[in-house]
Design a protein around this nucleic acid. Structure first.
Lengths: 217, 217
DNA sequence: ACCTGAACACCGTTCAAGT
DNA sequence: ACCTGAACACCGTTCAAGT
């Protein structure tokens, strides 16, 4: 008696785990995303997940990164634009549209200990658009702070990498960001990666809005 | 043999529970705020807390309300200002300063199901300042959306009271807010409390920032 | 190499029992 | 009226044991 060939079960993988996690969060909310429920959905015990992700924080990092990468892929397909303002506007509105499919995402972004690589790539692209539009690196820096939560639906301070930053980002892949940081740090010896003058940036963004309102009034 | 008079233990109360909860969150982070730890700090079993708060969500509502009330009390003491922009600016910067003592607060605000009464009172005050400065009710409405997370350090959409709104707010105590809503709803029959054109408001705030940047460039 | 069951140290909350 | 201990139904995670 021989055994029937059984379709080999698709083996678990980090990618399959993360995709399932995104689906759970989308459909049932982030609170429904537990390791046990995640195991159920991928057809394994919760404990098997730990062979593919290191822990639940890693799952949250992974699904956040996945959402932002989806945005990065989408904005990469936008047609070039000669007007910086149209380009930035279009890019941000597309990001918002995709973000609305994952309502849980901004809250998860905000709890990440370290800025995700995909977030840095997104901002690198924004800086590129503004530089092409004639912005100084300094103004790019203030602009990112001012856009704040509007850029990616959340307000985590950029560059506030916290105490236990993971692998340092590969600045070679982030030319605009690297250029901006080099200049901003150079101009202001007190400034380093991991520290911006938050009070100044807050007031800069606030005044941009208040001055704009005054003009409309 | 008679018993020594014992200083009667200070009885538990909602206020005492909430104060202890704020202290835990301030000193050890919001993750350290568990019902068991809270019971420990007030010198009672965790289960005793349920005589004074209905559950943990109620604790979170309570500490969020407490922080915003602290802000409301502080801004009430600000001297009157004839220039609306100075008044709004000063008020928001004071709110930010107090908020920085409770770094956990914005995240808690964002998870509240229903807009807290203290938040409505804060915004009622802001509307009052802008009305006094000559803003139309319509512009006040857009301005609150544009300020968004800068007004109170978080970006919960105002008026999005969700499905299970609790007791409706007492509009008599919120004259400016009530006036604004009446007019905004009147002007736009599609608009109701609980629904704003989020896409429009997002673009309004975004354009305010982009136009402001262009002017600086 | 990958998966599992049992177990551990936590949660929030209910409930019957105490004073 | 207020407080409590034990218990319940969950968490994330560890670990020794299986294939």
């Amino acid at each position: 008696m021989h055994r029937v060939m059984v379709e080999p079960r698709i083996p678990l993988s980090r990618d399959r785990v993360l995709r399932a996690a995104v689906r759970i969060a989308d459909e049932q909310g982030i609170a429904a995303l537990t390791m046990r429920r995640l195991g159920e959905v991928v057809g394994a015990e919760a404990m098997s997940l730990y062979h593919h992700v290191s822990n639940k924080e890693d799952v949250l990092d992974g699904i956040a990164e996945q959402v932002i990468q989806e945005i990065n892929d989408a904005v990469a397909g936008l047609p070039p634009q000669q007007d910086w303002k149209r380009a930035v506007r279009e890019r941000i509105l597309l990001a918002l549209q995709l973000l609305l499919k994952h309502r849980w995402a901004p809250a998860v972004f905000e709890t990440r200990k370290t800025t995700l690589g995909a977030v840095l790539r997104y901002h690198d692209g924004l800086i590129g658009l503004m530089r092409a539009g004639g912005f100084s690196n300094d103004l790019c820096h203030h602009a990112l702070h001012a856009l704040g939560s509007r850029a990616l639906g959340f307000s985590q301070e950029l560059f506030d990498t916290g105490d236990d930053a993971g692998a340092p980002p590969d600045l070679a892949e982030l030319p605009h960001l690297a250029g901006m940081l080099m200049e901003v740090v150079h101009d202001d010896p007190d400034s380093t990666i991991g520290w911006c003058d938050d009070q100044f940036e807050f007031e800069f963004g606030l005044d941009l809005i208040l001055d704009g309102l005054e003009k409309i009034k």
